[in-house]
Nucleic acid binder design. Sequence first.
DNA 1: AATACGTGGCC
DNA 2: TGGCCAAGTAT
Length: 297
Amino acid sequence: MSDSPLPLASALHEPVLHWYSENARTLPWRQPGAGAWAVMVSEFMLQQTPVARVLPAYKLWMERWPRPADLAADPPGEAVRAWDRLGYPRRALRLHAAARAIVERHDGVVPDDHAALLALPGVGSYTAAAIASFAYGQRHAVVDTNVRRVFARALTGTAQPSISPTAADQRLAVRALPEDEPTAARWAVATMELGALVCTARIPRCSECPIRSRCAWVLAGSPPYDGPPRKGQTYEGTDRQVRGRLLAVLRAAAEPVPKTALDACWPDQAQRERALDGLVADGLVDPLPRNHYRLPA
DNA sequence: AATACGTGGCC
DNA sequence: TGGCCAAGTAT
């Protein structure tokens, strides 16, 4: 349960930071002056969705809703529609709700306080730390799947991190943090970028890695993953697939859609009804009179 | 603590 | 071909 700095990690600071200075991607939410709202929107979109797919939706979103108040002024259904096919559309609803909360509680300004961020809909421990660190330069352990993988290899010496985030991951990331605030913030993005570009899940590019000579996993001979099997996510035939189809119809429609149009999406009636009920319960779909449905107003 | 929650690209 | 993976959160 030590909170003391890790000597092993401090040796990684300089090479990782230097690597980042030369290899960081130029992403719109990292541009100077992008602002905390840009960071927040990108973080919501990047929750489980790759950068390449986020880019176009992100640009349209920021043109249309450049400030939290702009999004808050539109109905939630517009956020769901603009979410396009990024997946997990509840994120769109939560981002919209967060924008309204920011207007109501924070005068329309994305808060810089970690606890205030964490209190927003859709903001968990990762996203709160990411916004505080990336947008406001604060010193936080920003622990996502990339960072967990980098530390699992470089510090722990295992091929893959634990299947789900653990308190141990969090402690390790805290102990690895540089003392100095701006350096810690730089380290947070840098380690994440290293995990995204070099220390990748399947075939890590160790020959391009700035810390390969100090990596515990490489030093141990790059032993293969030997933990419990990671449970694969099935999708075909699940309620999630049905929800996706129903929502796709509603996103494409400018007017309320009759239930008969939704019925054409999926052959199994019981499953279709269950999926539609779920969407309504989640607030992603508004039921209207006369068996019509639409995105929430 | 498990499980639900989209979508698509890659090897 | 198809399992694996992608800047997680909420319940």
